[in-house]
Design a protein around this nucleic acid. Structure first.
Length: 601
DNA sequence: GCAGATGGGTGGGTAGCAAA
DNA sequence: TTTGCTACCCACCCATCTGC
């Protein structure tokens, strides 16, 4: 949090200083009508002092609930208990509880369920007839309490959190199969000595390899116990030869297609036990929520006909390329909220051929998400920082000399600033090779996080430049755009996964403010014939991301691919653990998928 | 005395076969 | 089909040996 506190505190002051001039220019151009019916207020909305809420008078006695309120609470609790009762068979089966014991538990719970249903019916009857609820509510509460007491033992039988922890450790490469069995065996011994309880799954893990007698069989027995989620396919790919690392030979790479894995998690869970009382219409424990990846990956993986270079660039809306005759339809029209595609239109217009994922239950085109890291950090930000450095060089902020000297001075100051502010980064000295020209525009190639930190430093540089009296319009606009983007990153990191409406508005306001200012910078660069502030197609998905955060209230930090790329580290750990034979990749994949196979929600 | 080579022990497996 | 078992492999650790 230290990173963000460094600029948030000073944001309002700077915005107040510069916002007025910028807003006046914007209104004169008349090209911005805000986001739908919600215009972006000049300056920060927090600038308006809020009236202090009046302290509530303390009540002298706790509020007494009415009979009806008590009855409704008891009915809600009974409903939850009845739902839980309907799932015991499924849960016990997944906890590997023997069928005889399972049936006994389920039968016992069904008896409790009958008592609950009768008591609940009595309450509802009294409610409908307008009779006194006191007696029936007490009976229902008593039935709820009885169920709570008697379900305790069944809950214990389903609790295999220790076994899940062990298998999860194995799937992360943190332990070996033999260690897994030893830990489970030790738990069983301790539980027996102290007459404690243990889940059936932990006992089964402890019994692998004939209770550790044959350690070499443990992995085999574990694979049989947990079962692979799906049969893999083998792709033939060119790889370096193991013999001399120079020749290229064809190797077999095992994969499980995502739709096959999803089929296992969503469909086969209830197909494998049709007699289960688990509600079948809801499928297994998994549900398709989002498909994450960068734009290029999504285009190739889902055979999207819409992409940055196509006539229609977006699978979410009908935005057209800049050469389209209708100006309003072009993606460069950053002020416009394009209407989203209907499901039928998306299926007909966006896919070259139907991907198997399209046939999954619950699939929608909008679930193919844009990754904020690739769109912003590795796209817009690289052009923004490149242009900012170019602008600062032009004004001699980093002294005189050639480009190499400028970059060396920038790097020195940046690293010193990061040391003092204790912001971690891995950015070494920036060379001229990293600041290259892309289609004639400056473009800084740095890692995603380093770019984010560098942006904060460049914001500091612009603040100093403005404080020194720089009046140039480009500097003023660049300063505001940079500040808007840093605040956007701040809110992205600060806010939770599910946003409140106020949070959604706040973060999207910063996003739209950035787009508006960046577009003004792009126009200015054309008027001045200076190659800076390139408008990438990625600004269009950036607009969609902000629209989503405002309307759907979902923080885009939770659907970027930072974490997914960390899986490389997990795979590396697993690769170090498994045997290095011809089937090494297959073993890594099966070990990785053990977590999926063992996962019970 | 030190650094590198060597060899045995151990852990964690793989492959395969026969009995239950 | 599952389980018990044998033979074997490989990586790593650690003690010992060897050459400089």
């Amino acid at each position: 949090m230290r990173l963000y506190k460094t600029w948030v505190e000073t944001y309002e002051k700077n915005e107040e200083i510069h916002a007025e001039g910028v807003e006046t220019r914007r209104e004169a151009e008349g090209d911005y009508d805000g986001m739908g019916s919600t215009p972006i207020p000049p300056g920060d909305s927090q600038a308006v002092p809020k009236a202090k809420p009046k302290p509530k008078p303390k009540s002298s006695a706790p509020k007494v609930k009415t009979d009806e309120q008590l009855a409704r609470a008891a009915v809600v609790k009974a409903n939850a208990n009845l739902l839980e009762i309907s799932q015991w068979d499924y849960k016990l089966a997944n906890a590997s509880v023997p069928k005889v014991v399972r049936d006994a538990y389920v039968s016992s719970m069904e008896t409790e369920g009958k008592e609950l249903r009768d008591a609940k019916t009595a309450v509802e009857l009294a409610l409908s007839l307008g009779q006194s609820l006191k007696e029936s509510t007490e009976k229902l509460e008593s039935a709820n309490e009885n169920y709570r007491k008697s379900s305790g033992q069944v809950k214990k039988a389903c609790d295999h959190s220790f076994a899940d922890f062990l298998i999860s450790s194995l799937g992360r490469g943190a332990t070996s199969c033999a260690e897994l069995q030893k830990a489970a065996h030790a738990s069983v011994k301790e539980a027996e000595a102290n007459k404690g309880g243990l889940s059936n799954l932990t006992r089964k893990i402890a019994s692998l390899g004939n209770w550790g007698k044959w350690p070499q069989n443990i992995e085999r027995d574990l694979t049989v116990l947990l079962q692979l989620p799906a049969a893999p396919l083998f792709l033939e790919i060119p790889v370096r030869s193991n013999i001399n690392r120079k020749d290229v030979v064809m190797g077999k790479l095992p994969i499980i297609p995502p739709h096959a894995l999803f089929h296992y998690l969503h469909v086969s869970w209830w197909l494998k036990d049709l007699n289960s009382t688990f509600p079948q219409s809801s499928g297994g424990p998994a549900w398709l929520c989002e498909l994450r990846g960068d734009w290029k990956w999504s285009r190739e993986a889902f055979a999207l006909s819409t992409h940055w270079g196509a006539r229609e660039i977006c699978h979410l809306c009908a935005a057209k390329c800049p050469a389209h005759p209708n100006v309003q339809q072009r993606w460069t029209n950053l002020d416009r909220e394009f209407p989203r595609r209907s499901a039928v239109n998306a299926m007909a217009s966006c896919f070259k051929w139907p991907h198997p994922i399209c046939g999954l239950p619950g699939f929608q085109v909008a679930q193919i998400r844009f990754c904020s890291m690739h769109i912003v950090n590795l796209g817009i930000l690289q052009n923004l920082t490149g242009s900012l450095i170019s602008l600062l060089f032009q004004h001699g902020f980093f002294g005189q000399g050639n480009m190499e000297n400028h970059l060396r001075e920038l790097s020195s100051r940046f690293r010193a600033w990061a040391r003092v502010t204790k912001i971690e980064h891995s950015q070494g000295f920036i060379s001229s090779g990293m600041l290259h020209m892309q289609d004639g525009y400056p473009h800084l190639t740095v890692k995603a996080w380093n770019g984010q930190v560098l942006l904060v430093f460049l914001d500091r540089c612009l603040t100093a430049l403005v404080a020194a009296g720089a009046q140039d319009q480009e500097i003023q606009l660049a300063h505001l755009a940079t500040r808007a983007m840093t605040c956007w990153f701040d809110r992205l990191a600060r806010f939770p996964r599910l946003l409140s409406q106020a949070q959604g508005n706040e973060i999207s306001n910063f996003g739209f403010r950035f787009l508006r200012l960046y577009r003004q910078l792009a126009i200015l660069s054309v008027l001045r014939s200076v190659a800076r502030w390139r408008l990438l197609p990625k600004v269009h998905p950036f607009r969609h991301m902000n629209e989503d955060m405002r309307h759907r209230l979902y923080n885009y930090r939770y659907c970027h691919t930072f974490k997914d790329e960390d899986n490389v580290g997990v795979c590396k750990k697993l690769a170090e653990r498994v045997a290095k034979g011809d089937l090494m990749e297959y073993r890594i994949m099966t070990r990785f998928l053990l977590r999926v196979g063992s996962w019970v929600p």
